[in-house]
Design a protein around this nucleic acid. Structure first.
Lengths: 222, 222
DNA sequence: TGACTTAGTGTCTAAACAACACTATAGTTC
DNA sequence: GAACTATAGTGTTGTTTAGACACTAAGTCA
């Protein structure tokens, strides 16, 4: 059943950079393309926007399909529309990025399901289309927001140590942070609290565990 | 000549919030709609993206058509795609905003040409479509960027006084600024310099004039 | 020449940020 | 059980930045 218009229309898709933390490293979810173009190459998950759904709803739908999660941090990133970015037809893509707490990652995607994989942002494969540019834009946005908001907490699991949190900040910012200054600052924000538990692992002093006080909030700081 | 696709495609447009300063007030350019829907109401200038042009090129084209200017600050803002935002068909719009130095405004739009007008952002008319939301988003972005960059200088003419510049900051931020602190801070950035001229107007001490050192640069500060 | 109006200038206090090193506590080894 | 190892945890000081605050300067005009 064909759809006909008086003048040409582009296709519109959403693509999502889905981040989480695995093995203390920032990871992004990629899909192995099963069809041409770029068959066999890795790409950001995405799909076409349905006519009756909003852009945000399309992004949520893609996120749910690929990871099984919903209700996590999801933000529109940028819209990419170079005329030749897809060799088949003109496709304009509205890119989003999502942050998933590392304990909410479904086994479906976490296990090495065929054609889906988590990749450390330090060791990315070749990407299809203009997805390298999209992913770079997402990482730049994330790095910028980490500086002036509490967005990084959206990646933390239900309980975590301050060392793990500092490690995330250091990865995103790509530079080391002083331990004492970091703890002073993050605790002064009053956005995390000690759970009272601690984690023992290895021949050294156990670390206190913390939780995010209000997961639904991302504060702008300063 | 109809264009046919196997599945439905939305239309894609760009809309631009074009800002300048007129009479010491932040102004935005609006177009009076000549056709339905929202005939006779004011709207942001915009149009459909051509199949062979990039999104940025479409925005530049619209900007040039409406104001006669090019080469000014132009940035993608956000993409709006609620399914019902246009009653005719599904239209997804990629919004941009532009900043025009107040001495580059062409008479065409500056004069009260039929169907085009500059409006103070303090006294806006009713707007068509979801353009109130788009314009609010643009003003929020501008206010945010003024805080941490030198973007405000993109609105200043070739020569201006520090009082005029401070006045712009106060309007965008919607709160008064201390004159001495403002001058200290802006001069310490080393992005403007005295022209050596001064402006005499009215029964009081003349004001020194300044110019932007490098118009093409927008620095992120701090 | 005095009144009026906007331009222009400096100091002090408080807060935020950056640099910096040692003690605590668990597990493991001998 | 003493010594070793590895990571957790903790304060102070100097520097920089931000904010509060009031008077003098230099034109025009009556």
């Amino acid at each position: 059943m064909p759809y006909t218009y008086d003048y040409p229309h582009p296709a519109v898709s959403v693509d999502i950079a889905i981040f989480t933390i695995r093995n203390d490293e920032l990871n992004v979810l990629l899909i192995k393309r099963a069809e041409a173009p770029f068959r066999g190459e890795w790409a950001l998950p995405g799909g076409f926007v349905q006519m009756q759904e909003s852009l945000g709803a399309a992004a949520e739908r893609e996120l749910l399909e690929e990871t099984g999660v919903s209700g996590v941090y999801l933000e529109q990133l940028y819209t990419f529309g170079q005329p030749d970015r897809d060799p088949r037809e003109r496709v304009i893509t509205v890119a989003y990025y999502a942050l998933i707490p590392s304990d909410q990652v479904e086994l479906r995607a976490a296990s090495d399901a065929e054609g889906v994989g988590w990749f450390s942002v330090e060791r990315l494969p070749e990407l299809a289309f203009d997805h390298p540019e999209i992913l770079e834009t997402a990482m730049d946005r994330l790095a910028a927001k980490v500086e002036y908001s509490t967005i990084a907490l959206q990646l933390m699991p239900a309980a975590f140590t301050l060392t793990e949190l500092q490690n995330l900040y250091e990865q995103v910012r790509r530079e080391p942070i002083d331990k004492r200054n970091f703890r002073k600052k993050i605790l002064a924000l009053d956005v995390i609290e000690a759970t009272g538990e601690e984690r023992r692992e290895g021949p050294h002093r156990p670390a206190k565990l913390y939780r995010v006080i209000d997961r639904s909030r991302v504060d702008v700081i300063k």
